[in-house]
Structure formats: C-alpha cells, structure tokens
C-alpha cells in the first residue's frame, strides 16, 4: 500500500496529475447540475409571480 502511494519515487508528479483530473472532471459535472437547479427554480418563481398577479 505504501509502495502504491510512493509510485516508485514519482508520487509528486503522478498524484497531482490524477488529482487535477478529478477536480476538473468533477467541476464540469457539478457546475451544470447547479445551474440547472438554479434555472428551474428561477422559471418557477417567475411563473408563480405571474399567477399571483392574475
């Protein structure tokens, strides 16, 4: 297990590569999810307001 994280002495190059990949890939999933939620909520808000005014 220790040897696995040690990566034959290249840990400081291998793990940042995988770490950056994880951050970038996750960010591109979470961002559209949040934006989708935000847009749906905002459309709902506008529609409710329009209904109340009627």
């Amino acid at each position: 297990m220790k040897a696995f994280f040690h990566m034959g002495g290249y840990a400081m190059y291998v793990w940042p590569s995988y770490g950056l990949a994880l951050v970038i890939l996750l960010w591109n999933v979470i961002l559209p999810m949040q934006r989708k939620k935000w847009h749906i909520a905002s459309i709902k808000r506008r529609l409710r307001r329009a209904q109340d005014e009627k």
Binding site: M7, G8, G9, Y10, Y13, V14, S17, Y18, A21
Partner: peptide, 13 residues
Amino acid sequence: GESYRIIYIHVPA
C-alpha cells in the same frame, strides 16, 4: 518506471 502512469490521464485528455 511508475511515472508513465500519467499516460492514463494525459493521452485520453
């Protein structure tokens, strides 16, 4: 050695 494992991120990207 082990450093080549970066290939599994680098090349697909």
